[in-house]
Computed example of a mutant assay.
Amino acid sequence: MIDIEATVDPATQSALFARVRRHTGIVMADRKWTLLHGRLRRRLQALELASYRDYLAVLDQSAEEVGHFIDLVTTNETSFFRTPRIWDYLWHGFLPAWHAAHPAATLQVWSAAASTGEEAYSAAMLFEEFREQHPAFRYRILGTDIANRVLDVGRAGQYLGRNIDGLRKLRPAMLEKYFRPQDETCTVLPALRAGVSFRPHNLYQPLPDPTRFDLVLLRNVLIYFDEAGQEAVLENVRQSMAERAVLLVGESESLSRLRTGFVYQQPLIYRNGPGAG
């Protein structure tokens, strides 16, 4: 096995951080080198490269390698029904109000950093429960992520381990109702998957979709961008939202110091400002 250098010269390290930012928008500081090295080390071994200088040359010459690079450097931590207050808000506040105001419309939802799909399927389960009480209700969920490998998990809808254990603890009735167990894996039932689709997308670019979304979940992703990057991402997202549509962000995220077209509603919840979008 090829021995990969654990330390690199400052210029090479800076060049790698620059490639992370160029291809994902994520800003990494020097203290993140150990993390980056740990994620890229096996890839260099697979390519039989002993130095990061050699890897930079491959990365700059191969679009296919850029895809591998993005998959490796992005963080994809997620779970079913993460942050209970968000789901309580959707159930008790957003859904009844939206459906009353749009009784014949289809709710358009964007899970804008969908990772492996748990968030999108959590929303779908909640919406199915709501539809049982309001048969005319319809929805469509689009899940996007920059990393193709995690989208493949979402498309397959097969989960096991910690995430399924968490769902079993939080909402066991939903696990039984919307998943089919098989050995150690639980698979999302086709009826639930029918309302959810996945596609790759870089939030640093506008979404190439004419849909204007009524609800966007952009959770636990802004923390990886600097202030300019956050504002750029938020503007790209806002351009795909309907007027007065709702934006949900993560527990440690706030838009208060940013220049955006969003209006604060309550912690983690913002609305696309009047006249915007």
Rank of each mutant, 00 (worst) to 15 (best):
L44P: 09
Q45E: 15
Q45N: 09
Q45P: 01
R53M: 06
D54L: 10
D54Y: 00
L56G: 13
A57C: 10
A57R: 14
V58M: 03
L59P: 00
D60H: 02
Q61Y: 03
Q61A: 15
H68Y: 05
L72T: 10
V73P: 10
V73W: 00
T74S: 11
N76L: 12
N76K: 03
T78N: 08
S79T: 06
F80G: 04
F80Q: 07
T83P: 01
P84H: 11
R85D: 10
I86S: 02
W87E: 01
W87P: 02
W87V: 05
D88H: 09
L90H: 01
W91K: 08
F94V: 10
P96A: 04
P96Y: 00
H99G: 03
A100V: 00
A101E: 11
A101G: 06
H102Y: 12
H102I: 05
P103D: 07
A104K: 06
A105Q: 11
L107T: 01
L107N: 03
Q108N: 03
W110E: 02
S111G: 12
S111D: 08
A113K: 07
T116M: 15
A120Q: 03
Y121S: 07
S122L: 06
A124D: 03
A124Y: 02
A124I: 06
L126D: 04
F127W: 10
E128Q: 08
E129M: 02
E129C: 04
F130H: 01
R140M: 10
R140D: 09
R140A: 15
L142R: 03
L142T: 02
R149Q: 14
L151A: 12
L151P: 05
G154F: 15
G154P: 13
G154E: 11
G154I: 13
G157H: 12
Q158I: 09
Q158V: 13
L160E: 11
R162K: 06
N163V: 12
G166D: 12
G166T: 13
L170Y: 10
L170Q: 14
L170G: 08
R171C: 01
